[in-house]
Amino acid sequence: MTSAAWVERLHHRRQSVHQEIWDLLDEVKDPEIPVVSIWDLGILCDVTLESGQYLISITPTYSGCPAMDTIRADVSEALNKAGIQNVTVNMKLAPAWTTDSMSPLGRKQLLEYGIAPPENKVGGCALTPEQGIRCPRCGSEQTERISEFASTACKALFRCSNCLEPFDYFKQI
């Protein structure tokens, strides 16, 4: 699944003159979902160089996302390890993060990790669908929502009626 927001991000990255920095930052994973990079989740927004200082812009998924402080530190550490010391990590609020910024790879990695990736099931409705979310374990669409919020604010809790396993669904926002 490709979305306009993702294509725009990819285009922006390809235009950037700081390819080596973007590539280094591919190593920074989301602390809550350690298989997906902050680039693939859409958290990493921009890399610029201003007066000799690398400015890395990141955006929070949800306002209260407790992982942001860790991500900020991880970004600096990843660049410092590569010998780049002049780094400032900047929190960018607009445009607000959307699940549409996720990369196709990120969606695939979520699924393999056992988290159902965001789906636009109910005709453009931004809210958690009641049904039809595919179980990441057995692939059945016979699933039901148990709670609007799961292990983190960005996920809802579902249960599969086929294999009976509960699973997290990454909500579309």
Binding site: S63, P66, F149
Partner: peptide, 20 residues
Amino acid sequence: LEEDIAMSNVALDYIGRARM
């Protein structure tokens, strides 16, 4: 448990908003 988690998540959203 599910509602405990939901309330805490909503709380996080509000506290995050307050921080901004």
